[in-house]
Amino acid sequence: MQDTEMQPALAAMLDQERAGLRLIIGNKNISSWSMRPWVAMKAFGIPFEEVRIVLDRQDTTSRIAEYSAAGRVPVLLAGDITVWDSLAICEYLAEQFSILNLWPEDVAARATARSICAEMHSGFSSLRSDMPMDIRASLPGKGRTIGSQADIGRISEIWEDCLSLYGAHEFLFGAFSIADAFYAPVVMRFRTYGVSLAPALQAYADRVLAHPAVAQWVREALMETEGLPRHDDSAED
């Protein structure tokens, strides 16, 4: 990227910062939907203020309602604009910071990336319910149901196809993108529940874990102290 191309991007970032870009998230240990836009923003150097709301508390609903009538996290506040839903937030960021290429540049790769993110967004319900994200836990072998095993198989297929067609054995589409941010919580689940992967897929999962944005999220999740006797994804989207 040329310096002359970077100047508008930097100016856009500063404009967003002055507008008070804020991301409302849940606990880092369990809020997989919050993780997605947070990791994307950190990975691409988009400045924002983090507002963390602890889930599964008596005041959780009222606190989230201060930022969004939808009653779910994450929520992005950009000046007078409110964007809720993790995929909508990432699409908004991709538009506002287009020079940074949050989506792959290639048309076919970008279409595939959007498709697999939409599939993650609307599918894999068994994986989410049977193997909820819990970064601090180690639960090898737990949550293995027919449904979750089917979801694991489909995710493995997606990763294999993307790495083979576009990834050049790095991230799903070569450079880190929204797609990798969307599947980062899956990497967390696979680690927590001890899911065995083919060597190439495990190597991909390891690269995601080592990415600075993901590594920072994990570090901060491990520092959280809230006890979590119960969790579902009703306050997340």
Rank of each mutant, 00 (worst) to 15 (best):
I152K: 01
R144G: 07
A168W: 14
A179M: 03
F173K: 06
S164Q: 11
H169E: 14
I155F: 06
I152E: 01
I178T: 03
S177R: 08
R144E: 09
A150C: 06
I146M: 15
S164E: 12
C162F: 00
G143T: 08
G147N: 02
Y166C: 08
S164D: 15
L163H: 07
F171W: 09
G153N: 08
R144M: 09
A150Q: 15
L163D: 07
E160V: 14
W159R: 04
F173D: 05
R154H: 09
S148W: 07
G167W: 00
L165N: 10
A150P: 07
G143R: 10
Y166V: 07
W159N: 06
H169A: 11
Y166T: 09
G147E: 03
L172W: 03
A168F: 13
A175Q: 15
R154P: 14
G153S: 02
T145Y: 03
D151A: 02
S148P: 05
A150R: 13
F176Q: 01
A150M: 11
R154N: 15
F171C: 02
I152N: 02
G174H: 03
S148A: 13
G153C: 02
T145K: 04
R144V: 05
R144H: 15
D161Y: 06
A175S: 13
G143E: 08
K142R: 14
A179P: 01
G147W: 04
S177P: 06
A150H: 09
E157Q: 10
I146E: 11
I178W: 02
F176K: 04
H169K: 10
L163P: 11
S164L: 14
A168D: 07
R144C: 08
D180K: 06
I158F: 11
S177Q: 07
D151R: 00
C162P: 05
C162Q: 07
A168V: 13
I152L: 04
I155E: 01
D180W: 12
E170C: 14
G143S: 08
D151F: 01
R154K: 15
A175M: 14
L163C: 13
S156H: 01
L172C: 05
Q149T: 15
E160A: 14
I146R: 10
D180M: 07
D161P: 11
